[in-house]
């Protein structure tokens, strides 16, 4: 059996499946908000070196908008949404009903619009998982940054208490085809938190 840092393959599969359901719900919420069809790629769970998390997104110096929320309750961890600068501008245009290309920087309004999107996506994600598993989860107030991808991602990984050389990451790409919007979703669960999830979905924590 392939191991992912002590997490057996079938549990990785289960994580991906649970995330798929949660994120399916999240993009439905986003699609309603934007009144456009939004797609997601199949979520992938990785147990990888910290440095490789960055290469999942792109260049370290690339300007991105990031919303960071902390999950509390039965499953604790960190949720991050990362949009490239151009995608973030387009999202704000779509949300505020402006023509694409109107927004060229994120002022306080734009920033709070992006933050709200992160909030809604996370909310529907955890509601779906909560509904399925009966687990209780809450999120904290979203935190926001617009800067170099490397700077943001490293700061949030360190601040969320993931000090190990390898981290468990659940990643999805979501996109709006016509408007070329691309975003990354990351879930960094705390290690102990996963056993509760596996128990709740009827998978033995160890086998």
């Amino acid at each position: 059996m392939t191991e992912h840092g002590g997490i057996p393959e079938f549990q990785i599969d289960a994580l991906q499946e649970v995330s798929n359901i949660g994120l399916g719900n999240a993009v439905t919420a986003l699609a309603e908000l934007l009144n456009k069809k939004v797609d997601i790629s199949v979520p992938k769970a990785y147990f990888i070196e910290l440095e490789r998390v960055f290469s999942l997104v792109g260049g370290l110096e690339e300007a991105v908008a990031c919303v960071n929320l902390i999950l509390e309750g039965d499953i604790s961890g960190t949720v991050m949404f990362i949009f490239t600068d151009k995608s973030a501008f387009k999202l704000v245009d779509m949300l505020t009903g402006q023509e694409t290309g109107t927004t060229v920087e994120l002022d306080a309004m734009g920033a709070s619009a992006v933050q709200e999107i992160g909030n809604i996506l996370t909310g529907s994600f955890i509601n779906a998982i909560g509904g399925m598993t009966g687990l209780v989860m809450q999120t904290t107030v979203p935190m926001y940054a617009f800067d170099m991808m490397g700077a943001i991602l490293s700061a949030s990984i360190v601040a969320s208490g993931h000090y190990d050389d390898k981290v468990l990451v659940i990643e999805t790409l979501f996109f709006q085809e016509n408007d070329h919007i691309k975003g990354h979703f990351f879930l960094l669960p705390e290690t102990g938190a996963l056993n509760k999830l596996f128990e709740a979905i009827g998978i033995p924590a160890e086998c």
Partner: peptide
């Protein structure tokens, strides 16, 4: 890096 920090 982040604004809107909470105590946790």
């Amino acid at each position: 890096m982040f604004s809107g920090l909470n105590e946790k």
